[in-house]
Amino acid sequence: MFAPCRAAPGTGVSPALEPLATLDPAAFDTGLSPENARACWSTALACASMADLSRPLPGSPPGAVAIIASANVFTAPLEWAYQLAGRGVKVYLKASSAQRASAAAIGRIEGVEVGHWRGGDVAAEKAALARVDAAIVLGAEATIDAIRARSATPVVGLGPMFGVAAWTGDAHAHARDAALYDGRGCMSPAAILGRAVDLDALAGAMAEAERRWPRGRVSAEEASEIRRLASLARATGTWREGPGWGLARLPLSRLEPRGLPRVLCVYEGDDDEVAAALGPWRTQVGTVAGPVPGNYPRARRCNPGQMQAPPGDRRLHDGIDVMEALWTRSS
């Protein structure tokens, strides 16, 4: 059994985040459709609002923390910016140039300052890190490693992760998880696992999710990868598609995290087979929905439909107590 996550609240945004709640994220140029961007934004605000800002932490608080977000979904820095600022820590947020608008929105939180420098601009990065006691770096492992190597500032790195879900029969819950962020987020389901998966129900739910939260921009490379996946699924399993979505059933031996926009991959197998197939990636599984067999030490467990709604009061993110790490490392 797993401890279910608290349901994401539909209302109840923290007063500190209310200025953000009045913004329309459709203007953030996230690549998502306006409907999807709004759904992601409101969910992220509600989840961040759940953070317990009075939770005792060991050590002493850092005076200032930099959040460097390179290749992430546009809401990724939100919960850290909110929690740190809410505890009186000065926050310097650096997001990629593609996320200037959403970073500026997060900069509306009191105590958060937004800065920009070109990726790879080592001098600017060094100057920024010299101002802080610690940094949270969200992005590729190579980016995290490079920043760690270049700086004496303590770094909490949150690298690439992916989500998996057990087939529970609730096709709409799975489709919702796949729809938010168009399936590109680290909490998105890269795989639906189990037995007797109802592809018709999933296809219907994917189509309905597309109507509610239309898919956004798809790059040429992603479109090419989708054609590759479709061919692979046709050759070795089943491929279903509609306007703006795809559904692949593949042999479990083909399991790999893909993160393609609005494409859901189904792999059927017994518990032992599923656990074995996921084994090579067990430390990269960051979100597990439903009773997926196997041990995933860094994963948050939740119910299907809540993969994209991590409650802000959870202690661990990717297996790391980020706040505790910041407090102890900067002591």
């Binding site: 996230t30 690549g31 290749a71 992430n72 979904v73 990724a76 593609a98 969200l138 992005g139 590729a140 492992e141 949150l158 690439p160 992760m161 992916f162 989500g163 962020y181 168009d182 399936g183 590109r184 987020g185 680290c186 998105s188 890269a190 790059s219 040429a220 490379e221 992603e222 090419s224 790999e256 995290p257 893909r258 993160g259 090579p280 990636w281 067990r282 430390t283 990269q284």
Partner: peptide, 21 residues
């Protein structure tokens, strides 16, 4: 070439993840 398109998410594909033995 099509390669090098911007990755707009924090979920990366298999070859970009570190596989644990």
């Amino acid at each position: 070439r099509l390669e090098g398109a911007e990755l707009r998410g924090c979920s990366l594909r298999a070859e970009r993840l570190r596989v644990q033995a």
